[in-house]
Nucleic acid binder design. Structure first.
Lengths: 341, 341
DNA sequence: CTGAAAGCGCTAACAC
DNA sequence: GTGTTAGCGCTTTCAG
């Protein structure tokens, strides 16, 4: 009983006008093309009455444009990415673009699948947090002249547009803050991800403790275990094996979440004794006991820069501009967890 | 310098075969159509070497299918929806469908825009948490023979497929649990959303307190203020004005999050004195102090049912089956916050 | 075994 | 002012 969707053709024959006329009217070019008011009204009234929606697939095939931008992150349910998504979307809307969100789980296979899925569907551009192994896929996209902007991290050996923050600086500031507040045995808990953002955070921490003549104490959790019991177990052993640590610096907000759970399980009092600071803010950290100090990325600014670069590429005929490399600064939000004891 | 994407035509002329042959080979019909191994290999090698991706827009236009299902929820960054999204996606993948996620913010205008956006782009089906005012838009989709399944809530006066949980029952169980643990002045904090899921939760609470001869104490937060300071202010006054309440039942997990923040701000000790229970679980609730008791929805089961109904419709020629109305049961997870004091 | 050609729904240059 | 028509890239029937 599947009734076919009406097409321009059907409307045209129904109203005894040509397809062209209908097309012009529906695209708001009625006046411009000097179509009579009477015909315009007739077409508008009819298409509204049957709630006609043109087939955008056909339209895209014809125009070669989909007016869609893909926004690919590690995990769209993560606070940081979700907030940014909304900012991006708002900007895009005003420019008549739609944004499609997806999560790559920082997995190469998934990233590739998603890139292919959307590339085949002719999206107009990609904003991507790249997983470690997709350098060449990104390169392919660029070679095919598809607008791409990376963010959060980038490939040092690949010329691309990107927007990142100064991770080393920010990690430095956060470590310095702990030291200034009297902490001396600072642990750094991070993942084994060897991408720029993580390496720089580690570097920032190490540089700072070394300058202060303090020891460097690093735990790397395999990325795949980050949210699992295995990861929590690693954090647990690390902390219990080293009762001498007086503070912990977590390199991302999901590690912090696992870490808090572990510490609480092991010894709730420790939550108030240990200095705690984390990369990437989260609503949770404001309401936790104690409130958790965090390095907060300038979301609005990141979103604006990303879209500025993207819209610029979308506008141009050829993508021959030299890549934009933007580095922004993050802000340290001091809360109770890093207070001087 | 925009280089055109290669098309079947280009490959065909390059290899001196016809477009048809290329199409057959790329669609794996080479053997079936008895194309010589030599030609098959030639085409495969070449398309791989240039990393050829067919234009799915054209393919969709031709076949009328996009192999895409839309999954529209209130807020994809919410724990509950995000978890469900992954379950849905996994099932869809196995059946060669892709899932596109979007958030309607429980807003009618946004919901409509998204439905139109995807309808115009010919997606094959919709799985939707409907906002209150889009009954007619859903109805339109169904009339146009587009596969639709609602979940979390539904429109009582509209015959549709839906998957929901027994909210009244679950709210009843949760309230009963508080009463059994000795709480006597139970407050119910909810939103002013007048949709089935919220009304049923309220009803479950009210029925239970009334049966137990206890008073009913309800606060309704306007939905738009739910995550704002205004909403928090309302919760704050409600609690401070009524020091006699010994427990609170939050009707959704985001209200709980706001509520916890308010209580903690106002009087941290209250967190341990007040009985607290919430609808919808959240990772946070396991690690909070105290751990928060919650009504947990059977995510896996919901996802499976939704996809079963959807895939069934996708398979059928006509959508003439009578709508499936599925009601599942939720589980009460008892944690510290609702313990007997 | 392979190719020619129609047609999916739309846009826009061109014709009248 | 309005209509005719080519063509976007693909699938698939039918011909040879």
């Amino acid at each position: 009983m599947k009734q076919k969707r009406p097409a321009l053709k059907d409307i045209a024959s129904k109203l005894n006008v040509s397809i062209t006329t209908v097309s012009f009217v529906l695209n708001g070019k009625g006046k411009e093309k000097k179509i009579s008011d009477e015909v315009i009204k007739k077409i508008q009234d009819y298409t509204e009455s049957i709630n006609f929606k043109p087939n955008l697939v056909a339209q895209s095939l014809r125009t070669g444009k989909t007016k869609i931008i893909v926004f690919m992150v590690e995990d769209i349910s993560n606070y940081f990415f979700a907030k940014l998504a909304r900012i991006i979307e708002d900007i895009a809307y005003n420019k008549d673009y739609k944004v499609l969100f997806c999560s790559n789980e920082n997995d190469d296979k998934r990233s590739r699948e998603l890139i292919n899925l959307f590339y085949e569907r002719q999206v107009d551009g990609f904003i991507i947090i790249p997983s470690a192994g997709i350098r060449n896929d990104i390169d392919d996209l660029i070679k095919k002249n598809v607008p791409v902007v990376l963010f959060d991290r980038y490939f040092p050996d690949l010329k691309t547009n990107y927007v990142v923050i100064n991770n080393k600086d920010a990690a430095n500031k956060a470590t310095r803050h702990l030291i200034d507040n009297g902490f001396k045995k600072i642990a750094f808990i991070t993942t084994d991800v060897k991408q720029t953002q993580m390496l720089d955070r580690l570097k920032g921490y190490e540089e700072c403790v070394s300058q202060a003549q303090l020891s460097s104490n690093v735990l790397e959790i395999p990325f795949k275990d980050v949210n699992s019991d295995k990861g929590k177990g690693l954090i647990h052993s690390f902390i219990t094996d080293h009762a001498e640590y007086d503070s912990v610096f977590f390199s991302t907000n999901y590690l912090t979440q696992s870490g808090l759970e572990v510490i609480k399980d092991y010894n709730p009092n420790l939550l108030n004794e240990l200095g705690i600071i984390t990369f990437d803010d989260n609503d949770l950290f404001r309401i936790y006991t104690p409130t958790i100090s965090a390095v907060s990325q300038p979301l609005q600014e990141i979103g604006e820069k990303l879209m500025k670069i993207m819209l610029n590429m979308l506008k141009e005929k050829d993508g021959s501009d030299s890549p934009q490399e933007v580095v922004l600064n993050a802000e340290l939000i001091q809360r109770d967890s890093s207070k001087d004891r």
